[in-house]
Design a protein around this nucleic acid. Structure first.
Lengths: 311, 311
DNA sequence: CTAGGGGTACAACCGGTGGTTGTGGCTGGG
DNA sequence: CCCAGCCACAACCACCGGTTGTACCCCTAG
């Protein structure tokens, strides 16, 4: 099935005659005939009944037609997603299940008419470079990590403080706790594969470790959060940190426990970054939406790294 | 943009290396390279950064990837829509804005997991033939028109009685009425273009005309309901009938009036038809859904043709 | 009944797209 | 420093998909 062929099918169905469709597409009637025949051969059904004064859709053709339209629409959107100028708003988030993802879902619900593309970049350097080059419109990051000054033309605003929670399996010592003070985590094995050196979120956990005497193991390759959760659920002595806004889709009965951390509660300081001169109209809408929906939380009893950009 | 090329792109993005993608697709690495290059040329952006040990997505590539997946999914669904055996449930309705359309929307809302295709056939003969041939799974029709016995193997059940309403422009004599007795319509011009002789719905209006002394003009070609409504809205002496369950999407201020008809209220007897031996699992689900949701209305004060199949 | 017009399918031909193999260049690791 | 691994370029060739020319079918008008 070829998109040009599908386009031809739609044109022929629209016109009701191959000749007219051929004229529209600026090809010969015979070419249309051959394309349709090829499509019918490929699908294994007859799409048109050829009559003396044209061609009309069979029932199979009628059923196929809306799908053909949809196919062309999706193809158009796919091409638009990488068109320079007037492309969908492109936003970078840390992980598909993190807090930024939830914010973008909320934005999409509030403004379904705005086309969005979400990408996931690893480190802030590429994100900043992409913002400056215009390849990216906005990025959710924690701003202010030491030794990483933001260029002048990158603007940002704190948008969300996300409290961290401890994730354990059912056999973990702390599994029954309703909450756990941060200091009590010292000595426990906390496993966070995928902590890439040099990234701002690794800097966050480095500071957390240094300040409260925790031990975090970043060993082993990151096989994805599913594998991580699987291991944590099955290993009594293992726990991990997880953003409190993460939505878990997890089979019931697995017994994973999410335990709030207190005294203080570590919160991750999400900020939105963008290029000062980015002219994308939807960017202003996104900023307004975030400003309106993410009310400032009380910072009392919480911890963020000293370098975190102020609210 | 060609679907095979998109498939290649997805495979290469998945694998992270052109060679591996080539092995999966059973073509040479050079072919993958050329396909990707062609796609990039067509889109006008670079999708991969080629490194010494593979190829990884650029930001544009990351943005394009979900659209590519969607494209392949839609293509798969399009092909499935005409696959013989295990294709989506295919239902025939009279008009895209009629009551049957509303019933199917409700069914889709209740069972979003069931794939549907909706087609619109003109006359019952083709519908019945399609049901018997297996090209069609179900059809919403009025059953029982004289001289048109249903074959033995076609089963049916009355599912919905739809009251007719009068549709007028703001300047019509009856525009202010809250309801109008059927007898008062005698002498008024009622315009219903598109009444094709020989169809069951034309038989319905023929009976209505004969029994209550109405005059219905079926003159002129049917330019679609939009044109019909436009004319009715602008012509003071003109009115038309419309199913009471029809959802009109009409610019505000046009002043179209929908007036219930009484004494008696003509109702259109929608039935669902299917082939007795049709094995499609979703057909049973549809029948159960319709049985559960379309409660029997009170027939008092309503009119249906004498030939209408009993409830 | 016949002639004509409008419509589609088939045949023959041909150019360019898209595959192949062979090869070279780049890069990171031993 | 060289080798291994991977991608791009070049040359070649088959076949897909376009073109023109023509046959055939059906409906309609005279």
């Amino acid at each position: 099935m070829d998109l040009d062929t599908v386009r031809t099918f739609v044109a022929a169905a629209d016109a009701g005659r191959f000749q007219e469709a051929a004229a529209e597409l600026a090809i010969s009637q015979q070419a249309v005939s051959k394309r349709i025949a090829a499509l019918e051969r490929g699908l294994g059904v007859r799409l048109f009944t050829r009559t003396a004064r044209g061609a009309e859709l069979t029932i199979d053709g009628q059923a196929f037609l809306p799908h053909a339209h949809e196919l062309l629409r999706v193809a158009e959107r796919a091409a638009a997603s990488v068109r320079t100028g007037h492309r969908p708003l492109r936003v970078d988030i840390l992980a598909s299940r993190g807090a930024a993802s939830g914010l973008m879902r909320g934005f999409h619900r509030a403004h379904p008419e705005i086309d969005l593309d979400v990408v996931m970049l690893l480190d802030m350097d590429t994100a900043v470079a992409a913002l400056r080059s215009g390849t990216l419109d906005a990025s959710f990051r924690a701003v202010g990590a030491p030794g990483r000054p933001l260029p002048e033309d990158i603007a940002y605003v704190r948008v969300l403080d996300e409290p961290l929670e401890l994730l354990t399996g059912p056999a973990h010592t702390l599994a029954g706790a309703r909450s756990v003070p941060l200091a009590r985590l010292a000595g426990h094995r906390i496993w966070m594969p995928g902590l890439t050196p040099g990234t701002e979120w690794t800097a966050y956990y480095d500071d957390l470790v240094a300040e409260f005497g925790l031990t975090i193991e970043a060993t082993g390759p990151n096989f994805g959060s599913d594998a991580l959760l699987d291991t944590v659920a099955d290993t009594p002595a293992l726990a991990t940190f997880m953003g409190g806004h993460t939505r878990l889709v997890w089979p019931a009965g697995h017994g994973l426990r999410r335990i709030p951390v207190t005294d203080p509660t570590p919160v991750y300081p999400h900020a939105l970054l963008w290029h000062r001169d980015n002219p994308h109209p939807a960017l202003a809408t996104l900023r307004a939406h975030l400003a309106a929906t993410t009310a400032g939380h009380d910072a009392a009893g919480t911890w963020t790294p000293a370098w975190a950009a102020p609210r």
